[in-house]
Computed example of a mutant assay.
Amino acid sequence: MTTSEVLLSADADGVRTLTLNRPQAYNSLTVELKERLLAELRAAAEDAGVRAVVLTGTGKAFCAGQDLKEHVGLLQANDPAPLNTVSEHYNPMVRAIIGMPKPVIAAVNGTAAGAGAALAYACDLRIAAESSSFLMAFANVGLGPDSGASWTLQRLIGLGRASELMLLGRKVDSAEALRIGIVGEVVPDEELTARVQAAATKLAAGPTVAYSKIKHVLAVAAQSSLDEALEAEDAAQGALGKTADHGEAVEAFVTKRKPDFQGK
């Protein structure tokens, strides 16, 4: 495990776990944390030994979003940095998560608000602790959504519900989050780490290139015509049919054994 003041990174069984580590500030996002997280996401994408990624937080929060104390302080000092953070930090982080060529799981251990919730929405899977909650708090501070929330949330729960949560700034507890589709699973708080690690380890042992193509064709289909989606599927299948993992799966089927995927 490598440790910094604001972020923890640990590898186990092909899984890289990135843990936001500012519990005293509900893991709110400072410039330092945003820059470190972006660098770690990019490193995970490039590391062939990493075949699944987990994003989580320490303490009672997953991530409370932008650190408003730092934000206000910089604005009062006439520092232009706060006005550039969407383009310099949030947009690249969301692109790094959504474009990650391997599965990303959000282990939502507590409050996820604003940009913090948006980071969870960008992940491929969301497993939440019973004590967790989600809050689209942008309107409460006179801002609009960022960090891809306008794109991701409505694809999870539909335009009507996404509009309600963003306009009213209403908190959603874990039970409602499961019911409306923000998360795929809710577990007791004390079981979250083990459950997420089990899911991530299973994914890390799977056909990584196929997972990457699945993510790609789903993204294409979400914003294209049927013909474009069919073409993307065709291209993906053509490429995947030549992979070592597909060959291994066929051989395993014929010999009636479990495939041993190498992520290639």
Rank of each mutant, 00 (worst) to 15 (best):
W151T: 14
I214K: 04
L83Q: 13
E251M: 15
F62G: 03
L8S: 09
A107Q: 03
E32K: 14
V254L: 15
E190M: 13
F62M: 11
V141S: 12
K215Q: 04
L55H: 06
P103D: 07
A96E: 06
G65N: 08
L178I: 05
D67M: 07
S28R: 15
L37H: 05
L75R: 15
A118H: 08
S163M: 13
V172N: 08
R42P: 00
N91L: 14
L153I: 09
K258V: 10
N21Q: 00
L33S: 01
L143W: 07
S224N: 00
K171R: 14
G142T: 02
R36I: 03
G181E: 04
T2H: 13
K242S: 14
K60R: 15
V94W: 06
K69R: 15
A107S: 13
F253D: 06
L203P: 01
Q237D: 09
Q154W: 02
D79S: 03
A198D: 13
L165Y: 13
K102W: 10
D67E: 12
K215W: 00
Q197V: 00
G49E: 05
G73R: 10
T208K: 07
I105P: 00
A221G: 07
E191K: 13
A120G: 09
G169T: 02
E248A: 13
K242G: 10
P80W: 10
G59H: 06
K213H: 13
R179C: 07
G59C: 08
P259Q: 08
K258C: 07
V141F: 10
G238F: 10
V250D: 08
G148H: 06
I180W: 05
K34I: 02
A194G: 03
K264N: 05
R179P: 04
A249I: 01
G49A: 04
L83E: 06
I157M: 12
L135K: 10
H89I: 03
H89L: 10
I127R: 01
L159Q: 04
L68C: 09
